[in-house]
Simulated assay, not measured.
Amino acid sequence: MKARAFEYVRPQSVEEALRAFADADGDAAYIAGGQSLVPALALRLQAPALLIDITRIGDLSGLDVVEDRLRIGATTRHFEILGSELVAKHAPLLAMAAPFVAHPAIRNKGTFGGSLALADPASEFPAMALALDAQIEIASLEGDRHVPVADFFLGLYETALQPGEMIRAVHVPLAGAKTRCAFDELARRRGDYALVGAGVNAEIDDGRIGRVRIAFLSVGPMPMRAKGAEEVLAGNRLTCEIVREAQDALSVDLNPSGDEGTPAEMRMHLARVLLGRLLGRLETTP
Rank of each mutant, 00 (worst) to 15 (best):
R180Q: 07
Y193F: 15
N201M: 10
T179W: 03
E158S: 02
R145W: 01
Y157H: 14
G199Y: 02
G191P: 12
R168D: 00
R180Y: 04
G176S: 13
M166Q: 07
A169G: 06
D184Y: 11
H171G: 00
L195P: 00
E142G: 02
P148E: 10
V149K: 04
G164H: 09
Q162S: 15
A198N: 12
P148L: 10
D192P: 06
P163F: 10
T159L: 04
E158W: 01
D192T: 04
T179E: 12
A175F: 09
V147L: 10
A169F: 05
V170F: 02
A198K: 11
G155N: 15
Y193N: 07
N201Y: 15
R180H: 11
L141E: 14
A175W: 09
L156F: 13
F153S: 04
M166L: 15
V172D: 06
E203M: 03
R168A: 10
T179M: 03
L156Y: 14
F152K: 11
A175H: 08
L186N: 01
L174S: 06
M166T: 08
S140F: 07
A150E: 15
R145Y: 02
V147C: 14
A139E: 09
R190C: 02
L174G: 03
H171A: 01
L174V: 02
L195Q: 11
V196L: 03
I136Y: 00
Y193A: 11
T179P: 03
G197P: 09
V149T: 06
T159N: 04
H171C: 08
A160L: 01
K178R: 14
A169Q: 08
L195T: 13
L156R: 12
I167K: 02
F153K: 06
I136T: 01
Y157P: 06
L186Y: 10
E142V: 00
P148D: 09
A194P: 12
G191V: 10
H171T: 00
G143I: 07
I167E: 04
A139L: 05
R180C: 01
P163A: 07
S140Y: 06
H146R: 15
I138H: 04
D192A: 07
K178D: 15
C181P: 00
R190K: 14
A175I: 07
A160P: 01
E185C: 00
G197K: 09
L161N: 06
E185L: 07
N201I: 05
F183M: 03
